[in-house]
């Protein structure tokens, strides 16, 4: 086979494959553009931002209402349509049995969603509860991602015995059904305060559910991260970096981690959704957030005994959880699509 022997050094302007006329648009900006174009993702993002904003306004709302939503108000009264009614209304029909908290007034001025069985304003508690639920979920997500990335990086990049030991530990942890593990840990840790070095964690502290939820989902995240690190470790640009004599820390920071970031980012909405549901379940079982603090899970428990008469007490936090988790799942899908490097071109 003979080839043309005189060198044809063509300059870059090959018509079939000219340098695309872009301003150096990197993969991150491309992903962001793709995300922005996804309408359901933007709607979900708006929902999430709205939820976050509302819950942040909890103290302001309670202050404006002039009530303390954590104080029992069993003997209190409220003005509805100019009339003063007791917050806990005794029955006046039949045998006169039973007491019903006032129902939703649909008036933002107070008891918008009605009162719970301690006479407290459900709407105000819903906002405070949302704050706790979101804070716990967010912190647990951050904690989980940090731990999982560390474990995944070390296990995947170093390989060998380190990888084997870490992977077996992850396997053991993952073998426990998640809720069973969370319940066991909660019951043990919630009974009394404990001290680690200079830090004392009281029994009702939010750090406990954060820590528990953050830790139990580490295997879920660490295994895919480790798998990707293993792949990246064998990829040719990492080999090239090793061949160039670049130090390991630099390779991890500049070659491995940036290519790991898409995977990590995709886990953020997934973990947030998981954390919210787990925290609600634990709080519903009385082993998550402890009274007097409220969370969406504790409010559902409050409303359980009012399902027949005042269903909104349980429905409202339930709907809040559904809306938030749904938005997170839709956003999570969209983020994963946007970051999909197996690009469907541009």
């Amino acid at each position: 086979m003979s080839l043309p022997s005189e060198p044809v050094l063509a300059p870059a302007a090959e018509p079939a494959d000219a340098v695309r006329p872009a301003e150096g648009r990197g993969p991150w900006r491309t992903a962001l553009r793709r995300l922005r174009r996804n309408r359901s993702a933007m709607v979900s993002l708006a929902v999430l931002l709205a939820v976050a904003a509302l819950t942040l306004l909890a103290p302001a709302y309670a202050g404006w209402l002039g009530i303390d939503p954590f104080r029992s108000n069993l003997a209190g009264t409220w003005v509805i349509d100019g009339q003063s009614v007791p917050v806990m209304e005794p029955s006046t029909t039949g045998l006169g049995l039973g007491v019903t908290p006032i129902g939703p007034t649909w008036d933002l001025g107070g008891y918008f969603l009605g009162a719970d069985n301690q006479g407290r304003d459900v709407a105000a508690r819903l906002l405070y509860g949302g704050r706790n639920s979101l804070v716990i979920a967010g912190s647990a997500t951050v904690l989980c991602l940090i731990l999982a990335t560390l474990v995944g990086l070390v296990a995947g990049y170093m390989g060998g015995i380190v990888d084997t030991v870490l992977s077996r530990i992850l396997d053991v942890l993952w073998a426990f059904p998640v809720y069973l593990l969370a319940i066991s840990l909660s019951i043990v840790l919630l009974t009394s305060a404990f001290t680690i070095g200079p830090v004392t964690i009281t029994a009702g502290s939010l750090l406990l559910p954060i820590g528990i939820i953050g830790v139990i989902y580490v295997p879920y995240v660490a295994r895919p991260i480790r798998a990707q690190v293993l792949t990246l470790r064998q990829s040719e640009f990492v080999l090239a970096a090793i061949g160039l004599g670049l130090p390991t820390r630099r390779i991890l920071r500049k070659d491995v981690l940036p290519n790991l970031l898409p995977t990590i980012i995709v886990f953020v909405p997934i973990l947030l959704a998981l954390a919210i549901t787990t925290e609600s379940a634990l709080s519903y079982l009385s082993i998550g957030v402890q009274p007097p603090d409220a969370s969406w899970g504790t409010i559902i428990q409050d409303g359980q005994t009012l399902l027949y008469s005042r269903p909104w007490v349980a429905l409202a936090p339930g709907l809040a959880i559904v809306a938030t988790v749904l938005a997170l799942n839709v956003l999570g899908d969209a983020v994963r699509d946007a970051l999909d490097a197996r690009g469907h071109g541009r």
């Binding site: 049995l97 039973g98 005994t305």
Partner: peptide, 19 residues
């Protein structure tokens, strides 16, 4: 009976209730 059923049994099932 739990609180949220009292009104119910006190009105709809009043003949079956003895206080």
């Amino acid at each position: 009976p739990p609180a949220d059923r009292l009104n119910e049994i006190g009105t709809q099932y009043a003949e079956q209730v003895h206080v």
